[in-house]
Amino acid sequence: MTAVECILLLLLLVTGVTAPLQKHPLIMVITFTLFGLVLSVLWMLLQAPDLAITEAAVGTGVTGVLFYLTLRRIRRMQGTEDDE
């Protein structure tokens, strides 16, 4: 069990450290979503199922969607500026 936890924590570290370093916005959001997914598995291992459900729905789903929508909007605004 300890080994699984250590692997998951390492994965959490890697995704957490590299997520803001990504150049491509979509890859950044996907890495952040992966971070939330690993975290929700860790909540399950920490015997907190309420947290696992909430993190899977909110931390992984809704936050990722909000970041994606913001980035898409900004890209669209860039596109219209270039056209003019």
Binding site: P49, D50, A52, I53, T54, A57, V58, G61, V62, V65
Partner: peptide, 17 residues
């Protein structure tokens, strides 16, 4: 069981999205 207002509301909101 595990869940409650915050978890259930979050899952329902995610389903709507």
């Amino acid at each position: 069981s595990p869940g409650g207002g915050f978890s259930g509301g979050a899952v329902l909101g995610a389903a709507l999205i």
